[in-house]
Design a protein around this nucleic acid. Structure first.
Lengths: 329, 329
DNA sequence: CTGAAAGCGCTTACAG
DNA sequence: CTGAAAGCGCTTACAG
C-alpha cells in the first residue's frame, strides 16, 4: 500500500491538495469543518506530511545537528536529554553526531552534517577556533556549548566562582596544600577552570600552596594515574578537572590505602550521574544541564531566524558539598 | 549567496544537471575527467547534494531513528556510540529520540519519527508488545534491541549463562543465601534475567537459598532503598538487575557500615562505564555494546532492503569478576 | 476561505 | 557516456 499524500486525501475528500496542505501547515487558514474532515481522514489513513518534501519546499529540515565530542563521557547524556526536550518544544528533531565515533574526521563530519540540518549545536568541541569556524561554515546557523569563539553564539557554564568556593571550602577544612588536576589542553572549559583556580590562588592565604598537575585527558585513568604525583606533592586537598578524573583519583588512592575523605579531600566538577553514586558521594560543582540545553536551542532558533549578532549566554555552576571533603586530620 | 545546486555547477561547467547528479549518486557512470571537474568545482563552491531533494526523489532519507528509553541511563551511551559508528559505515545519520525526554508520548513519538527515517532502532522499549507494534507501524522497517517480539527483527544480549556463572561464582565463594534484585516488570531484559536465575536456582546446591526482591525501577535509588530488606534477608550474596542498582546497594550498605566485599558480595549487570569506576570495581556481566550496535544496523539494513523474514540475533554477555565479590567471612 | 500552478533540488528511466 | 524531461510531495504567491 502506498503512503498517503496530500493528494490522495484531497481526492478522497473531493478538495484540492492546497487545502490539505494548509490544514497542516497553516490550519488557521482553513475553514473549521473542512479542517476537521481533513484531519480525520488523515488520521484514518495514517498520513503525516512527508518531511523531505516539506523540507525541499520550505528550505527547512526541522533537524538540529548536535555534535558531542564523546557520548560516552557522562557529561553529555543529560545535556543531550535537555537539548532534545527543548528541541521537541520547537518541533525539531535531533541528529546526534558523536565525534568520537567518527574520529578523526571531525571537520569533514560537521560539514556534511550542516547540509542536512537547520542549525548546529556543537558541544565542548576541542577543535582550534579557526578549524571550528571552517567546519561550521559561514552560512550554517550554529551555537557552541561550553566553548566560546568570537563571532559565534554560545552558551557556557562558568564554574569560576563555584570553583573558588570549592577551594575556599578546602581551606576552611584546614587543607593547606592543594593540587589541581588540569583537564585537556584543547578544552576551553579546562582552560577556564585552571584560570579560575589561579586567580583564586593569588589571593589565597599565604600558607596555602597550590600545585598544578597535568594537562590530562578527561578520563578516569588520568585521575588514577596521577595518584603517585598527588601523593608525592603532599597535598591533602584535590581539585579535579571533572568528576571522571576525581573518580579515578579516589580509586587510585584506595589502591594505596589512602581514604577519602579521612586522609584526603577531593572535589570534582560537573556533577554527572556518577557523582551521586560514589561511596561516599562526590563533592562537586553542579552544572545546570537543563538550562544549558534550553538556552542552546533557544539561541539556535534565534540564529536560524537571523538574529543580528550572536548572543553569548553564561550560566553558573554551583558548589555541591557531599561526602568527599572533610576536615584535615 | 545562494547555495550551489547541481544546476549551478552544471551551468558553470557547461554540462547538464543529470551529469552532475550522477557524479555524486552513480560516479561510475560518468567519464573520469568529467567527474573530476565536477567534483573539483563542487568542492570549490562548497556544494553537497541537498538531502531533502534527494530524499524526495529516492524515497530514502539516509536517516536511522534511534529510540532509547532514557539516554541518561549509562547503558545507552555506549550503545548509541556503536550504532552511530555502524550507521556511518552505511552513510546513514542517527536521529536520536530519548523517550524520557518526551514522556509520556512514546507511542505517538515513534509514529511521527517513522515518517522521517528509513528505519527505526528501538532500544529496550518498555512498551507492551501490541503497543510497540502499533507505534512502529506495519510499514516502517525496524529492529528491536534488547527486546524480542514476534514478527520483528531483534538483537538481544542473552545474559542467562553469564548470570548463572555469577551465581555459581558466589556459591563457590561460600555464599549460601543469595538475594536477587529484580528489574522493572515491563523490561524484557529484566524478565529474562530473573528467569535465568530461577532456572539456576532449581539445580543449585540444596543448602543454597535464593530470595527475590522487587520488581524495582532500574535506578540507583532502588538499590539503596532495598538495603534494609536485603539485610533482613540475611543474604551475603547479591545479584542486582543492573550496575545502577548494584551501585545503589553498595551505597546503602556503606551507610550502614556493611562493607563490600568483606561483609557482602555483589554483582551487577551490563558493565557500564560506572562499573569500572567504583572502588572496588564492580563484578558484573559485560554486555557486548559494540556488536549489539553493529548487528542492529546490519539487521536494519536488511529489513530496509526487504529481507523476507525478520532475523533475531542473540549475543551473549560474559561474567567479569572484579572487586565486589569475595569469599564469605 | 479555496484552487491551479510553479517551484524547491534531486534521481532516473528513456533516448541518443 | 550524456542530456531532456518527468516526477518525488510538499508550500505558497496569485487569483478568485
Amino acid at each position: 500500500m502506498k503512503a498517503a499524500t496530500i493528494y490522495s486525501i484531497a481526492a478522497e475528500l473531493g478538495i484540492s491538495g492546497s487545502t490539505v496542505s494548509r490544514a497542516f501547515s497553516r490550519p488557521d487558514l482553513v475553514k473549521d469543518d473542512v479542517r476537521e474532515r481533513i484531519l480525520a481522514t488523515a488520521a484514518a489513513r495514517g498520513y503525516a506530511p512527508n518531511r523531505a518534501a516539506r523540507g525541499l519546499a520550505t528550505g527547512r529540515t526541522g533537524l538540529i545537528g548536535l555534535v558531542v565530542v564523546d557520548i560516552t563521557n557522562p557529561f553529555f547524556p543529560p545535556l543531550v536529554g535537555s537539548i532534545e526536550r527543548a528541541a521537541a518544544g520547537i518541533e525539531a528533531s535531533v541528529l546526534l553526531v558523536d565525534a568520537a565515533a567518527h574520529a578523526p574526521a571531525e571537520p569533514g563530519l560537521v560539514q556534511r552534517l550542516s547540509s542536512q540540518v537547520d542549525g548546529l549545536i556543537v558541544a565542548s568541541s576541542r577543535l582550534p577556533t579557526a578549524d571550528l569556524k571552517v567546519a561550521i561554515g559561514a552560512t550554517t546557523p550554529a551555537v557552541l556549548v561550553n566553548r566560546a569563539a568570537a563571532g559565534l553564539a554560545s552558551v557556557v557554564c562558568d564554574n569560576s566562582e563555584a570553583l573558588r568556593g570549592a577551594a575556599d571550602h578546602l581551606v576552611e577544612l584546614g587543607h593547606r596544600r592543594l593540587v589541581v588536576l588540569r583537564g585537556p589542553a584543547a578544552s576551553w572549559a579546562a582552560q577556564r577552570r585552571t584560570a579560575a583556580i589561579r586567580t583564586w590562588a593569588r589571593s589565597a592565604p599565604s600558607d596555602v600552596k597550590v600545585i598544578e598537575l597535568g594537562p590530562f585527558d578527561a578520563v578516569f585513568e588520568s585521575g588514577r594515574d596521577a595518584v603517585p604525583d598527588i601523593l608525592e606533592s603532599g597535598a591533602t586537598g584535590i581539585l579535579a578537572f571533572d568528576d571522571l578524573m576525581a573518580c579515578g583519583v579516589i580509586a587510585g588512592l584506595a589502591e594505596r590505602g589512602v581514604r577519602v575523605p579521612a586522609d584526603c579531600s577531593i572535589v570534582g566538577c560537573d556533577d554527572v550521574l556518577l557523582a551521586r553514586m560514589l561511596t561516599p558521594p562526590l563533592t562537586t560543582v553542579t552544572a545546570p544541564f537543563e538550562e544549558l540545553g534550553r538556552h542552546a536551542v533557544e539561541l539556535l532558533s534565534e540564529v536560524i531566524a537571523g538574529a543580528p549578532r550572536p548572543a553569548n549566554v553564561k550560566l553558573s555552576g554551583s558548589l555541591t558539598i557531599r561526602g568527599t571533603t572533610a576536615p584535615v586530620r
